[in-house]
Design a protein around this nucleic acid. Structure first.
Lengths: 214, 214
DNA sequence: GCATTAATGTAATGAGCGTTACAGTTGTAG
DNA sequence: CTACAACTGTAACGCTCATTACATTAATGC
């Protein structure tokens, strides 16, 4: 167990094959959803036979869960609060919203797949769905922490409410972009959203006057 | 129509069969999506054989499109502006948001299916998807008209922006509810949304400029 | 050299899919 | 009664699906 594993794996192109399979699966699943993603299609797209896919992954469920897992970092990075503490809160919220918007535009496959997994309900829940919801909850907690930092006096319920609303807005705007395509300009919409979040945060700050957060 | 008694409707009753098929299809498709909806499942759920389904509908695509078409009224009714002109605009927007929230809670299958159809992209677009987007656009136009009435001074672009944001928020909150279930209380969230919409409207009406951000 | 392990290639399995063919049944019209 | 149209029932078609069995190649350890 303690011997160097990196040496062993170099025998063939296993590592790169795995990556190619995941790339192909992410592309297909992000466009066609869970059911619409067939092993044959992924196989064709990555140039490797089905047996290779089943060598690297237990089954289709495992494959798509791995796609979700690998893509989490994209989300995670978009949720770091930009600027520093001397900047006004509203600008920082707006910048954060802009980051999220950019992420959605740059790699829409991940969220599209996640939302499809979220909406579908089948008798046996795919582990990919569970994985997405888990990852999404991490993102939510992180966002709540950011909001709590921006409004230190707000109570936890208020923060949670605004965080939920923030994510809901992002989801909805993503869908609007999916539908409208080029006719939808996300920037003013996310500005609107950032403004709404900031206002809500200010308003919901409990009891004592909100410490000047703007 | 009822020239004869109960004997008339004994066997050859296609109208009710059609309704039963549509009910079953709406239920299945609203939960499992387009691909997940098999004719066999719908057949089992409505108690009629597959041949009956194919007698009433051209094919699966036609069936699901019919499901979408039939459910439009639910949406349409939710988008009539409550109250009268003497009521303050903010209350009316809040009431409207409440209506939409109630609709989403009462019959979530329709929107769930619609959003799944929206997100999925396959080589041949299902006519059900086209139908949903068309219906959704009607709803959007109607909402824009309501907003224009509430803010007569705002220009058309601003109204469209707010309408898009309004629908995006509703979509996102619906998804939040789908994920969170009972732990998500939609009421304060939709109040928050209504407030955001109202603020955006007044801001656009008063200033003439959307925002000065960025 | 040989054995072992990682990975690929080939081919098949059985199940479920959408769809159709077609015979059977029932209400209505002539 | 017969004829016919509106359905329903049974059974199959061809196809794709996820998955597996198994032979094969290539790189490593001994």
């Amino acid at each position: 167990m303690t011997e160097s594993r990196s040496e062993r794996k170099r025998r063939a192109n296993g590592e790169e094959s795995r990556r190619r399979i995941l790339d192909a699966a992410a592309e297909v699943a992000g466009v066609r959803g869970y059911d619409g993603t067939s092993i044959a299609l992924v196989s064709e797209k990555c140039g490797l036979p089905a047996s290779s896919i089943y060598w690297h992954f237990k089954n289709k469920d495992d494959l798509i869960a791995a796609v979700i897992e690998r893509s989490f970092d994209i989300w995670a990075d978009a949720l770091t609060l930009p600027g520093d503490d001397t900047d006004p809160a509203r600008e920082r919220v707006t910048a954060l919203a802009g980051q999220v918007a950019k992420t959605l535009l740059d790699s829409p496959d991940f969220l599209r797949l996640g939302l499809m997994l979220t909406l579908e309900r089948r008798p046996e829940e795919p582990s990919a769905r569970r994985m997405f919801l888990q990852v999404r909850d991490v993102a939510r907690a992180r966002l709540a922490a950011v909001l709590a930092m921006l409004a230190p006096d707000a109570d936890r319920d208020a923060i949670d409410l605004v965080a939920t609303y923030a994510i809901a807005g992002a989801d909805g705007l993503f869908i609007a972009k999916e539908i409208g395509g080029d006719s939808v300009d996300l920037r003013p919409l996310f500005d609107l959203h950032a403004r709404a979040l900031h206002d809500a945060l200010t308003r919901l700050t409990a009891g004592g006057q909100a410490t000047e957060i703007s």
